[in-house]
């Protein structure tokens, strides 16, 4: 047994050294939503380590104490059916832990599903993020801008991403700003994020979507509101307008670099009309939903 634990602990040390070079992305949050999730994760890791260590300790003690070589040859173990109190304890403690974690989980659910705390009085920036094989299209309807595979965002302002897809289910994920959410063909999902610090972050599609999935990434640059406004200004001066033909071309499967356009595809190819609530209410509306499915 000893060999095993020695080995395991050396492994653990090795892993920690490796991991110690740089903080893990999810645990290095740069926005309120990601911070909430990181603190949930750390809390659960703490409680869970306690459980694992407890089980491990009991196991090691029992194995050591009751191994056959440690006992007389004529020892005959007793018949034990069970004990009310022990069982109550075995149920009670996990119930308490689970109840506590459930409470934490429910609380966090409502936090990450609403606008980030800290800058509630700011108007949210709405970005339509739609995926096609294997690219991301970011439409800023209020600014009248569309980018491909990169995202500029202001810091200290709520971000509201409206997600949908021109193809397979994808998942919009910027680990340092917050967890992911699916983008699907027939409805729009909403993801609330926020960035506290200016900087470059990586974003990607996290849900397998075929051959080009691994490279289906995008860059996120967070900057102050003034810089963001300057960028919007600059795009309007320099970029080409996005036409329907051009957009259809962009939808062709493949990889593109970063691109910038004025105007958004929402003007000629609006986002799906369903949201999750319509569907669960079983909308009897028979509107044509296929005109923006892109194939």
């Amino acid at each position: 047994m000893k060999k095993k634990w020695a080995f395991l602990s050396s492994m653990l040390a090795f892993v920690l050294v490796l991991a110690g070079c740089e903080p893990l992305m999810v645990l290095d949050p740069k926005g309120p939503q990601a911070a909430q999730q990181a603190s949930d994760i750390m809390l659960s890791i703490g409680i869970m380590s306690f459980i694992v260590i407890a089980v491990l300790t009991i196991l090691v003690v029992i194995l050591f104490k009751y191994r056959a070589s440690n006992q007389p040859d004529d020892y005959e173990p007793p018949h034990i059916e069970g004990n009310k109190w022990v069982e109550a304890l075995c149920i009670g403690i996990p119930v308490l832990i689970v109840a506590f974690l459930s409470f934490m989980s429910v609380k966090s659910n409502y936090i990450v599903e609403s606008a980030p705390v800290g800058y509630e009085n700011e108007e949210p920036l709405v970005v339509y993020a739609s995926s096609s094989n294997w690219k991301w299209h970011f439409s800023y309807p209020e600014e009248g801008i569309e980018t491909v595979n990169y995202l500029y965002i202001p810091t200290d302002r709520p971000l509201e991403f409206k997600l949908y897809s021109f193809g397979p289910i994808t998942s919009f994920w910027i680990p340092q700003l917050g967890g992911q959410k699916y983008a699907m063909a027939d409805m729009v999902t909403t993801l609330h994020l926020g960035a506290d610090e200016p900087g470059e972050y990586v974003g990607r599609n996290a849900n397998f979507s075929g051959k080009g999935f691994a490279e289906n990434t995008f860059n996120v640059t967070a900057m102050s509101q003034t810089e963001f406004d300057e960028w919007v200004q600059e795009v309007h001066e320099k970029a080409e307008p996005l036409t329907e033909e051009k957009f259809d071309e962009l939808l062709e499967p493949g990889h593109l670099g970063q691109m910038t356009f004025t105007g958004t595809h929402l003007e000629f190819s609006p986002a799906p009309e369903h949201t999750h609530n319509d569907v669960s209410e079983e909308g009897n509306d028979s509107e044509e939903e296929s005109d923006h499915s892109g194939h």
Binding site: V26, A34, Q36, Q37, A38, D40, I41, S44, L101, M104, S105, S108, N109, I111, V112, S171, P175, G178, G179, Q180, K181, A206
Partner: peptide, 9 residues
């Protein structure tokens, strides 16, 4: 923990 699952998923 579903909120954290957004990061693990």
């Amino acid at each position: 923990m579903s909120a954290a699952d957004y990061q693990y998923h």
